[in-house]
Simulated assay, not measured.
Amino acid sequence: MAIVYLFGCLLVIFGNLEQVPGAIGTIVSGAFNPEGVAGGVLGVLIVGFQRAAFSSEAGVGSAPIAHAAVKTKHPVSEGFVALLEPFVDTIVVCTMTALTIVIADTAFYADARSEVAGGGAPPDGVVVTSDAFETFLPWFPAVLAVAVALFAYSTLLTWSYYTMKAWTTLFGRSRRSENVFKVVFCSFTVVGTVISFGSVIDFADAMLFACLVVNLLACYLLLPVVRRELREFREGLRCGDIAKVPADERADT
Rank of each mutant, 00 (worst) to 15 (best):
L17P: 02
E18M: 05
Q19K: 15
V20G: 02
G22W: 05
G22Q: 10
T26G: 05
T26E: 07
T26P: 00
V37T: 09
V37H: 07
G40C: 03
L45E: 02
Q50F: 10
R51P: 00
R51L: 11
A52W: 00
A53D: 00
F54S: 14
F54A: 15
S56Y: 04
E57V: 05
G59A: 11
G59C: 08
G59T: 05
G61A: 05
S62P: 04
A66W: 00
H67M: 08
K73V: 06
H74M: 07
H74E: 09
S77K: 11
E78I: 14
E78L: 06
F80Q: 06
A82E: 09
L83H: 03
L84K: 12
F87N: 03
D89A: 07
I91H: 06
I91Y: 12
V92R: 01
V93M: 11
C94D: 08
M96P: 01
M96W: 03
M96C: 02
T97M: 04
V102Q: 02
I103M: 06
I103P: 02
A104W: 00
D105F: 07
A107C: 00
A107P: 00
F108S: 12
A110S: 12
D111T: 06
S114K: 15
S114F: 05
E115A: 14
A117F: 09
A117C: 06
G120M: 04
A121K: 07
A121E: 10
P122I: 04
